[in-house]
Design a protein around this nucleic acid. Structure first.
Lengths: 157, 157
DNA sequence: TTGCATGCAAAGTTTTTGCATGCAG
DNA sequence: CTGCATGCAAAAACTTTGCATGCAA
């Protein structure tokens, strides 16, 4: 590993990240930083987010979506993710370090930590879904898939 | 949504997935299926994994890595991931549905579920790391980053 | 002065999609 | 037949990397 220098880009990336609670993706960080440093490149943003998280100055959130998200809050805390719009928010619950103990003697792994993520519907999506007569949709989907399900069950047992 | 047909490709993708406990990525599924259907395309694999998981026949694991992984076991269960090699295994611990209740009244979200993932070192990586004099590495890294950390702390408070 | 950091662009990786054709129902 | 599914290839989305140059220490 190499020594980290204190560049303008690095400083501003960190500053912008500390301004928000939205756990932005790399691209979102890029957009925020670009307002202050119009010539910054996306590569620099990726490189710095990677380095800063390696040094423990920020946290790389490897959440249940294909994109990485970054969090200036390096305290261990939990998140809740909206299954519909992908928004990620902090959850006001204390972390439970004793979780790791659950696995003692049950696994050959050396447990380092755990990640607990809640999945749900944010208020906005909750409302929008209601308007979509979600009940009807669900029934519809179930009906369509059940044919295949039965066939496959028959085949596989 | 459209009706699902029972094609050879779809059937074999499911069969191959049921053979393994390795929570393969889409590409790994593709490699497995290709042995039996050499002409199958990666697009078909993606489309089917997506459809099968939408129907609840398999589970899409959105774990802490950039690639999706798929699991034939649709029961709710926890996983442990090796932070070094990325391997994912099941964890012999019962799921705790009461977790969702923790958030009651503390969040505006409608909680649908939770995902608990343990992070650790698999036995193989544990051994390999020992040989790398990990202790020395850790000290080294800490020293290198502390300079920046201090500077930034001073600047930001 | 030294060598890490940057901007830029190209390339890599993973996933999605358009389209003509195939095939299950 | 009908229209969902497939193979193929191109494109999209996200991330990494090579290189010449810039700049912090």
């Amino acid at each position: 590993m190499k020594k980290l220098r204190n560049t303008e880009q690095r400083k501003i990336i960190l500053e912008e990240l500390k301004k928000v609670n939205t756990h932005p993706t790399a691209d979102e960080v890029y957009e925020m930083v670009k307002k202050r440093l119009p010539r910054i490149s996306i590569g620099t943003v990726y490189r710095n987010l990677e380095l800063l998280s390696k040094c423990g100055l920020i946290q790389k959130l490897e959440l249940g979506c294909s994109q990485m998200r970054f969090d200036w809050n390096t305290n261990n805390h939990y998140h809740i993710r909206c299954i519909r719009c992908g928004k990620v928010e902090d959850v006001p619950v204390e972390t439970m370090s004793r979780f790791e103990k659950i696995l003692e003697g049950k696994s050959d792994y050396e447990i380092i930590g755990h990640r607990l993520e809640f999945i749900g519907l944010c208020p906005k999506c909750k409302k929008e879904l209601k308007d979509l007569k979600e009940e009807k949709q669900k029934e519809f989907r179930k009906e369509e898939c059940s044919g295949l399900q039965e066939k496959i069950n028959r085949r596989f047992r």
